[in-house]
Design a protein around this nucleic acid. Structure first.
Lengths: 237, 237
DNA sequence: TGAATAGTGTCTTTCAGACAGTATTAG
DNA sequence: CTAATACTGTCTGAAAGACACTATTCA
């Protein structure tokens, strides 16, 4: 349209990571303190620009994930959350950012990042509190990511990603209770979760201890899409 | 990391549109014939590059939508489907494409595009048939878009977007039947759809004619998220 | 022993699906 | 009238939620 001399603009492309985990019975997100302008000193999602014109987006996300957490490829599933590309979102110029969602199993240690001495787990409710200011449009990305995680618990086996390779049904129930911010009946949950084919599988006759009677251990099953879905109470009606 | 002289790469950004509608009891998608290389002569999704560094992504999508269909802003809802940015997807160089999903009401006329004498409605099953070749990775985008539309029918009021401002419950049912490719019991659907609060509202005492008894007219209700959701049969168990 | 958590059985309510039957139009 | 579609009523089976009960551990 118009003259032949028009040339489409090129823009910078970044990837940002929403890394969620469960700590202290809270949904927490990994945030870094920015060491450079803009937003120096503010909290932000870990991320960065593409390394080269040949780097795939998902590869860039996995590279950032490895840099921040030490976890690499096939240990953590990355889901594309969306693109954030409003013209004014980065004061340095036009940058569009592709956000990825990652879930990490509950870990007792702080972060254990490689070059991430400036990274912390922050409860999402605190990260989203009015007094916390996040760089760029990362507050909106975080809001969208929490909502995505909540939704994914219903229809996918995402919840098991919050647990280790072995877990009890109580631990799995805590994932739902924390992310959805509700209480679930342990007995109904117990049977419900086992009735979904392929969701979880018994993991040997082993057991585990905590406070009362030892619980059976399970591992994630083969199914990614849950059918029938886990129904979120309070959403109905 | 590394030297200070490293400069992140800039890439071209495109928007591509998945425009769906219902025609002849089929889910159809608007495709254009490419007039230039690469993929000259092949079918492709309508789309194009950002106009300028200051253009917002959604604005670019709406601009393309207006160019292809004449429909503008607030007439059609656009949902971001995702980013497609594999390094080799465009032979011209690195291009990442943001795909948007749009639903248009059923229209009797062909296309009525402005500059789109080379645009056609194609049934999705034909566009996805092995003998049809689509440019770039547009086949994958189409696959993802169809799946997104199917999923959205369950949890959102997207189905009403396929209808005009007034519709009968039979027309709404046809949307579900076509997109999900199933048959639904008209009587159960009739009550189910009215029991979801805010989904549809009676639109005056008016009526409409087709073949048998005239049907009441409805209009879209205020709710975007459906609760309880419409359940897709065949998905359960 | 009691406290705490794991796991089972069972009842009730709710809702999706099946389907008979009535209402209103065109021909 | 018949054919066709719109709409209503009712039954049934499956699943969600409530909750009593038993099992197994620790202190």
């Amino acid at each position: 349209m118009g003259t032949d001399s028009w040339i489409p603009p090129k823009v910078l492309v970044a990837v940002d990571l929403l890394i969620f985990t469960l700590r202290a019975s809270q949904l927490q997100v990994l945030l870094v303190e920015r060491g450079v302008e803009p937003f120096r000193g503010a909290l932000a999602l870990p991320g960065g620009f593409l390394n080269s014109s040949e780097e795939d987006l998902i590869d860039a996300a996995q590279r950032e994930l490895a840099e921040e957490t030490g976890l690499s490829w096939d240990q953590v599933r990355l889901d594309q959350l969306g693109v954030y590309g409003a013209p004014g979102r980065d004061p340095r110029g036009r940058v569009i950012s592709v956000a990825y969602l990652a879930i990490m199993p509950r870990l007792p240690e702080p972060v254990a990042g490689t070059d991430a001495a400036d990274a912390w787990w922050i409860p999402t409710h605190r990260a989203l509190a009015p007094e916390t200011s996040l760089a760029f449009d990362h507050r909106q990305i975080l809001i969208d990511g929490v909502e995505r995680a909540r939704s994914q618990l219903e229809h996918s086996a995402l919840a098991t990603a919050f647990c280790g390779p072995m877990f009890t049904i109580s631990e799995l129930r805590e994932v739902y209770e924390v992310v959805w911010d509700i209480r679930l009946d342990p007995r109904n949950f117990y049977r419900k979760v086992q009735s979904v084919p392929g969701f979880i599988e018994p993991a040997g006759p082993s057991r585990k201890t905590d406070k009362g009677r030892p619980a059976r251990l399970f591992r994630p099953g083969p199914r990614q899409a849950l059918d029938p879905p886990m129904t979120r109470p309070g959403e109905r009606r």
